[in-house]
Write a protein that binds this DNA or RNA. Structure first.
Ligand code: SF4
Ligand code: SF4
Lengths: 143, 143
DNA sequence: AAGATTTGAGACTCTTTATTCTTAAATACG
DNA sequence: CGTATTTAAGAATAAAGAGTCTCAAATCTT
């Protein structure tokens, strides 16, 4: 699995928030309901994004979560690394320590290229790029 | 994590076998010792490769495992799919069902390209290509 | 002030993956 | 035959990930 389930949920929720037209905070309950997730579980995941400075939260009635920055300034890689950590973009394919530092295997070069492409894809894609797509059709975020 | 730990171990062991110059069967105990793995655990993993027709095994003294086919005819993707299954090369990045069939997000096209590149990398690279590398220096398979 | 709403934090349970352990089956050799 | 060697199979345990539950803290409304 490329991304953990928590990470998938976090990304989908972040996209949901960036797509919600209203200005204020969106209750987690609403998000979880719309995306078919457990509210408790999603709350836990979104706390990680809040701690990472990607989301901001507000308690009480009319509370919820919102993007801490404009969607155009949140790259997907920030969400991924906040939840799954940076390992995916740094690890050796065979799980060996000190990737490529000594005796790199021929796979190394090819893998590095793919890994960098993957990192670039996540780093250059922002939430608003996904949210603005589909020309009004709406991005599918639930099954 | 791109590949499970079992899969990493299986790949490393398969590379080890394809690099061992001797003709006969290599005892799992020797492999596990050289690669710093538990013999019991590796045995279990290699059984999956044997069942998949990638390795052949032989019991008793002078027994062990060997490639069922020449290393030049074993693509890495076979090992990966025998252990981790084909999900990695088929799944949606956000874990949504029916990837791309309806309302594909803009990430979809980019992700499909990367996924296909990844699949191609595993599909076109064979064990002997890795084993023959490093011009005698030897491929590093242990930490 | 009182009660309702909503996130924060953490304990807890369940499931999957990782790892170890035990026993059986096949093979070689004296 | 009897014993040592080695894989096969599967139970048992440990660790990590996924998901649930409880309670506290902040905030709003009345
Ligand atoms: S060279 Fe290949 S096997 Fe060695 S650390 Fe890099 S990716 Fe891993
Ligand atoms: S379009 Fe994007 S989000 Fe939708 S299924 Fe394909 S990869 Fe997943």
């Amino acid at each position: 699995m490329l991304l953990s389930k928590s990470c998938e949920y976090g990304l989908r929720a972040a996209l949901y928030v960036s797509m919600s037209e209203k200005e204020g905070y969106v209750p987690i309950r609403v998000i979880s309901s719309d995306l078919g997730m457990s509210a408790h579980f999603l709350t836990k995941i979104l706390q990680q994004l809040t701690k990472a400075g990607i989301l901001k939260s507000f308690r009480g009635p009319n509370g919820g979560i919102a993007l801490a920055r404009p969607a155009s300034q949140v790259a997907l890689i920030e969400v991924v690394e906040a939840i799954d950590g940076p390992e995916l973009f740094r690890e050796c394919m065979l799980g060996l320590p000190g990737c490529g530092e000594r005796q790199p295997c021929p796979l190394h070069n090819k893998w590095m290229i793919e890994r960098e492409r993957l990192a670039a894809l996540f780093a250059t894609t922002t939430l608003d790029q996904l949210a603005d797509s589909s020309e009004g059709v709406g991005v599918r975020l639930a099954g």
